[in-house]
Amino acid sequence: MTSPGTAPAPGVPAVRRRLTAEVWIVLGLSLGQSAVYSLVSIAARLTAATPLASQSTTLNPSRSARPYLDLVYQLLNIGFALMPVVLALFLLSANGRSAVRRIGLDLGRPWRDLATGFGLAALIGLPGLGLYILGRAIGITVEVQASALGAAWWTVPVLILSALQNALLEEVVAVGYLSERLRDLRWRPVAIVVASALLRGTYHLYQGIGPFVGNVVMGLVFAEWYRRRRRVMPLVIAHTLLDVVAFVGYALLPPEVREALGIR
């Protein structure tokens, strides 16, 4: 019985409705929003007069011609992009349990997580590069320019921070948070893994069909690994490594090498 003046505990249907609304809100403020924009973007690209293979996209654009103002904009963009991560962790800790421990974002196993992260990066990175090259060759992938930042002293540190931001946002929200909440909603394990993978693929659709397929495969591997291990930290490490190699490597490659590889 409840004491006078105390609201009764919500029933299971009410809890499920609230959790479902919560998931839509978190995704609507983060990767779900990106997925919707990507769907519109790929529709626009496929219906444009220019073939998909002749189109391009830039992952880290410059935001000002003035270097120090550009730096401020870059840092603000990275900081605010991490707010959905903070929100997801806050919501997962509502029952008093540490959210970082719940999804394995803690530093309790640094060497094991680091080794696993490197292994996952190698497993995903090389086939991913091959799929990108294949996609460019058959015309289903746009040209991806990993960075358009100038050669300032802060370019490489900002690209590393951008890689870490991407990794935290995608792995915490699309894998850790989404898996936990769908598990709370009693989704089947296979459905959780597929939903996470399709979300990852969809918000990369603006890069073309090839990256969609590649990211769905990456999403299946990462979501299944999380389902078995319940640790997101190795996924964050792997994703950060992949993006650091792509972003920093692109920025440091001489123009003639980029041209030889078919990138600009």
Rank of each mutant, 00 (worst) to 15 (best):
A7K: 12
V158T: 13
I103A: 02
Q165N: 12
T47G: 02
A94N: 08
F222S: 05
A21K: 05
R186P: 09
L39Y: 04
G28R: 02
G125N: 03
W154C: 02
V236N: 00
N95Y: 03
A115W: 11
G128L: 01
S162T: 13
V144Y: 01
T240M: 05
L169W: 01
L76G: 10
L159C: 07
A174K: 05
S38C: 03
R66A: 14
G104D: 12
G96T: 08
A122K: 00
E170A: 03
P84C: 03
V158F: 09
V175W: 02
S196G: 15
R227W: 15
G130H: 00
Y68M: 15
T47S: 08
V190N: 05
W154E: 01
Y250H: 15
A146E: 04
V232L: 01
L59E: 14
L89P: 07
E224T: 06
A81P: 01
V216N: 06
P127V: 00
Y37A: 13
A35V: 10
G130F: 05
L205H: 03
R45P: 00
D106L: 10
A7M: 10
V248H: 06
G79P: 03
P157R: 09
G119N: 05
A115H: 07
A88S: 10
F118D: 03
L129F: 12
S162L: 12
W154D: 01
V221T: 03
T240L: 09
S196E: 11
G32H: 01
V193I: 15
Y250C: 09
E180C: 08
P189L: 01
T240Y: 00
G130K: 00
V248C: 13
W225Q: 04
V175G: 04
R17T: 06
L220Y: 06
G119E: 14
P255I: 11
L235D: 00
L185M: 13
V100M: 10
V232E: 00
A53C: 00
F247P: 09
V236I: 03
S62Y: 12
Q207K: 01
Y226Q: 00
L87R: 05
V216Q: 07
V175Y: 04
L182D: 14
P110I: 04
A148Q: 14
